[in-house]
Design a protein around this nucleic acid. Structure first.
Length: 960
RNA sequence: GCCGAAGUGGCGGAAUUGGUAGACGCGCACGACUCAAAAUCGUGUAUCGCAAGAUGUGAGAGUUCGAUUCUCUCCUUCGGCACCA
């Protein structure tokens, strides 16, 4: 009677049954506690489902099914991340519209997912390419735009010369075009960017309270790359030819010399450093080649042609070259100008080099070759001075970068301190003197958000020349004469204060500010300009008292809202004492500004649908295919009614997936992206599982969007996902990545066809630790199928006779299994959970008998993993209602221990005997029994017993 | 270079308040069934040894009655970032 069961019959039967009876529908409310399980919705590719999908989906399907049995109202939804490049590339090749192809792929994916028996709520299915859906993607973008978090800037992007198409970073593989293998060059284009950097601190800090696996937290933290340090101001002076030629090593300037130096103060160079303690060791400074001051100092630099040549060379290097050629440092000294180290008035050289990045910090560094590896290498190559300021290393061999050891030397008032102490002492010294301040920097960059592609959400904006002209003509200009002020003001979308910035020259930063007016901010150093709408203006004196007294504040600002800066103060932020003092002395003007881009007008009639086109190829000059549709592009400006043009860029694939989990909550809502009540009920997502590859992309992006939506009051929680786990990749049979070209792709359809969905599900859970990459093993699949066949035979043959009486040992094992399976599911140790089920079934087979209750419990425990066979056998046992509705079993704590145990007897740490004893045996009895053992006696006779160790229920250890 | 994870049979892997190393599965060997094969079932399966026994969790040291588990040093593999000052 050893039959194998036929999944082809029972699996479709139960899939139909579950669907018809809506057993997996989530209710928007009710008495049950809610539980939101989420998997990353798939991109419906032409290849169909990959075996990797079921790994993640089965795992959370198990959790969802367990939660339902535990009495939760579970939301476990599914949808389609339907915009994306492959469908568009296919369209370019074949002329078939991406929508047609994508819809066909979705049909295939839906069939495949249904054939796996996942307990999705299919009534909430969504697709990001559906205009009813992307209406809200566009709406969120417009909110970002209106809050100054979306802006356009000129950027160098990747561009494939063969395909004549702009590429995303993800589409560049090894410096070549992913599609055609052609050469990729940098091309400067105007791009939309989202200001994710504004959320850098929150994205980092809030990770602490989340239940994300450590790897994810660490990776996101690294990516955000927060570092604490200080900015330090260096004055720039003109160097005499004589001083230059002597390569003066100890040229200390007198204070009047600095004051009378011919350079204006706004040509200070500000550097960012994490090691202000080493300031006495700064022997030169380095600017990024792109640093604006290089151009500004053009007339003063005596070797400008050489400098200019270097800048051109650096600009031509691709990212690849710039990192590949990092072995050898290059650079050019700016002759004719020198910087002054503010701590000791020492005159030092200024260099430019491409090892300093324009995009990080201030684009300028102080070089401390004795205590920084890169500076050390650079100083050695160009023969620059190296001064040791921390003892403990050997700076003749390498830079000493240890921050935890060593003592400050050659550093005047820092001498003798530990570096960490020196950092805080130097930082406060700099602040006191007004030549530096504490600063925080992030590696995170703004998110390049536009694609010159067709198959994505159109960006709902209009470019209007007349609106632009109006703003340019009517705006008040505010000039910034130094970079620091610019940096403080030009951030946008926050409150900025005037006067207090520079109490001595208040008018210099003051403009004619009106609510609703437009403010033009002009950087007089670089020529850069930015425009702001003035949202609010306040003026007040003696504000320090106001900060402290909330009631007074309310009176004064009753009709208006409290400015953001004051709110921050209330919630624990603080200003430095000298800053408060300056406010007291001078009073303060505060403006709430919002960055705007002149001439760009939101298109509010959403959705802005993708127009139909026939040519999907990006144009010669890298413009979106949409730009060729003149009828669509030319519109009336929604603001002034004049002639205007649409934005033709589309959003990247990451847009739709940044908020999809919100739409599942209320998928048919046409008034809101989801109703506030339902959002309040379902959020946050309780458990989200996905791939590690999305840690710094989708996961970070969607946290950013969610935090923004929280700030504007759309969603009720500051974080979208409470718990995030990640699955490992499934590799091909040889341990290599599965790919079409290697021919090692396993198609889930084939596995299901041969062995059934339950086998595929169970195998993927059993194959190894869930979070690790693991190769596919066809033989392993067979092993799991054998297990299911054995299960089938337990219930369908005379192999096992159901007994009325429960066997005591079996009862203990059943209870142990209940506990083990439950714990393992929560900890995602699915492999050992399956193993526990195998042990239980093997035991039943060995005993050739089992009671009804035990047989039922085995089916319930198996059902989240292999739901079809479990339902079928459940029905065969005579049950009328679905197994899905059964409660999850609880282990009987009194039945977790066997009555007899094998006590291990060790002598000097070596196992010498195993004796059967009652589980609750006392030490004295155990000792007697152990000493009575023949083998033990052999080792004990003639020895003196030094010590015995007794571990109840486990072992007894003799030391002789 | 920095950050992170991990090294256990022929293979995937079990084993956490430190207490029988190798659960479970694959593979392999032998046996049963069969004319035969497949499937299935049974037995065995870390290494050396006939055995008693000894050795054994990347390497080396340490703590301990006892270490895959804790500490230190080193090696290797994988993943992420990569001149981030």
């Amino acid at each position: 009677m050893n039959k194998s069961y036929d999944p082809k019959v029972i699996e479709p039967k139960w899939q139909k049954y579950w669907g018809k009876n809506k057993l997996f529908s989530a209710k928007d409310g009710g008495d049950k506690p809610k539980y939101y399980c989420l998997i990353e919705f798939p991109y419906p590719s032409a290849e169909g489902l990959h075996v990797g999908h079921p790994r993640s989906y089965t795992a959370l399907d198990i959790v969802a099914r367990k939660r339902r049995m535990e009495g939760y109202n579970v939301l476990f939804p599914i949808g389609w991340d339907a915009f994306g490049l492959p469908a568009e590339n296919y369209a370019i090749k074949t002329g078939i519209h991406p929508r047609i192809k994508t819809e066909a792929n979705i049909v295939n994916f839906r069939r495949q997912l249904k054939s796996l028996g996942f307990s999705f709520d299919w009534d909430r299915e969504i697709s990001t390419a559906d205009p009813k859906y992307y209406k809200w993607t566009q709406w969120i973008f417009l909110q970002l735009f209106k809050h100054g978090l979306a802006y356009k800037a000129k950027m160098a992007i990747n561009f494939c010369l063969d395909c004549k198409v702009g590429l995303a970073n993800e589409e560049v593989v090894g410096g070549k075009c992913e599609r055609c293998g052609g050469e990729v060059v940098k091309k400067t284009k105007s791009q939309w960017l989202l200001k994710i950097t504004k959320y850098a601190d929150k994205l980092e800090k809030d990770l602490d309270d989340l239940d994300y696996i450590d790897r994810i937290k660490v990776q996101q933290k690294n990516w955000i790359g927060r570092s604490e340090g200080a900015t330090i101001q260096f004055k720039v002076v003109i160097a005499s030819e004589a001083k230059q030629s002597h390569k003066t090593k100890n040229n200390i300037l007198k204070s009047d010399e600095i004051a009378s130096a011919p350079m204006a103060s706004f040509n200070d160079i500000i550097v960012y450093t994490t090691r202000p303690d080493t300031l006495f060791g700064a022997t030169y400074m380095v600017l990024a080649p792109e640093h604006e001051l290089v151009q500004k100092l053009k007339d003063k630099i005596t070797n400008f042609s050489e400098v200019s040549k270097y800048i051109d060379l650096a600009a031509k290097k691709s990212d690849l070259e710039r990192t590949e050629l990092q072995k050898e440092k290059t650079g050019v000294e700016l002759k004719g100008v020198r910087a002054v180290n503010p701590v000791n008035s020492k005159e030092i050289a200024i260099w430019i080099s491409d090892y300093v990045l324009a995009s990080y910090g201030t684009g300028a560094i102080m070089a401390v070759p004795a205590h920084d590896d890169r500076d050390f290498e650079f100083a050695h190559k160009f023969g620059l001075e190296i001064i040791e300021v921390i003892s403990g290393g050997d700076i003749s061999k390498s830079a000493y970068t240890d921050i935890d050891n060593g003592k400050m030397v050659n550093s005047d008032f820092l001498n003798g301190l530990a570096p960490s102490e020196a950092i805080s002492k130097m930082t406060s010294w700099l602040a006191e003197k007004g030549i530096g301040s504490k600063a925080i920097n992030y590696k995170l960059r703004d998110w390049i958000f536009s694609r010159q592609r067709y198959w994505g959400e159109p960006i709902p904006l209009v470019h209007c020349k007349s609106c632009q002209k109006e703003i340019l003509d009517t705006s008040t200009t505010l000039n910034c004469y130094d970079q620091e002020t610019w940096n403080r003001l030009a951030d946008g979308s926050k409150t900025v204060e005037s006067r207090a910035l520079n109490p001595e020259e208040p008018d210099r930063y003051f403009g004619n500010i009106k609510v609703g007016g437009t403010l033009k901010l002009a950087n007089k150093v670089t020529g850069e300009e930015k425009y702001f709408e003035v949202k609010n203006v306040w003026s007040y004196k003696n504000s320090a008292q106001l900060f402290a007294d909330k009631e007074v504040l309310k009176k004064i600002y009753a009709p208006k809202s409290i400015p953001e800066s004051l709110k921050e103060l209330e919630s624990g932020y603080s200003y430095t004492p000298d800053y408060i003092e300056r406010i007291n002395k001078n009073g303060v003007i505060a403006w709430e500004l919002q960055m705007i881009t002149p001439g760009i007008v939101p298109w509010e009639k959403l959705p802005l649908e993708l127009p139909e086109i026939k040519e999907f190829q990006t144009s010669e000059d890298g413009e979106s295919p949409l730009s060729k549709l003149t009828d669509w592009v030319n519109v009336k400006c929604p603001k002034c009614g004049g002639p205007a043009k649409r934005e033709t860029d589309t959003m990247p694939q990451w847009a739709g997936s940044s908020w999809y989990f919100l739409r599942y909550i209320d998928p048919a809502n046409s008034k809101d992206l989801a109703s506030p009540d339902k959002l309040k009920y379902w959020l946050p997502v309780d458990w989200y599982n996905g791939g590690m590859e999305h840690t710094t992309l989708h996961l970070l992006y969607s946290r950013f969007w969610h935090k923004f939506l929280y700030d504007i009051g759309v969603v009720p929680t500051p974080e979208p996902y409470q718990k995030r786990t990640a699955h490992g990749m499934i590799l091909g049979e040889g341990g290599e990545k599965m790919s079409k070209s290697r021919g090692n792709v396993v198609n889930p359809d084939d596995v299901i066809g041969e062995h059934g969905a339950d086998t595929l599900r169970l195998y993927e859970m059993f194959m190894g630790p869930f979070d690790q990459a693991i190769p596919w093993d066809t033989k392993g699949v067979i092993g799991v199928k054998r297990f299911l066949d054995r299960i089938w035979n337990i219930y369908n043959s005379d192999l096992v006779k159901p007994e009325a009486e429960a066997d005591k040992d079996l009862d203990v094992l059943v209870n142990k299994t209940i506990q083990k399976v439950a714990e393992d599911i929560e900890a995602m140790r699915f492999n050992t959970a399956v193993s526990a089920l195998m042990i239980l079934s093997n035991q039943i087979i060995e005993k050739k008998s089992a009671d009804k209750a035990s047989l039922e419990k085995l089916l319930i425990l198996l059902s989240p993993f292999a739901p079809h066979i479990a339902e079928e056998l459940w029905e065969n046992m005579g049950h009328k209602s679905s197994l899905v509705l059964e409660p999850w079993p609880q282990a009987d704590k009194s039945k977790l221990k066997n009555e007899t145990i094998e006590l291990i007897v060790q002598i000097n740490g070596k196992v010498r005997a195993k004796i059967k004893l009652p589980a609750d045996v006392k030490e004295a009895e155990a000792l007697k029994a152990a000493q009575a053992d023949e083998n033990v006696q052999k080792y004990l006779t003639g020895q003196t017993l030094k010590k015995t160790v007794f571990v109840p229920g486990k072992l007894i250890s003799f030391v002789v």
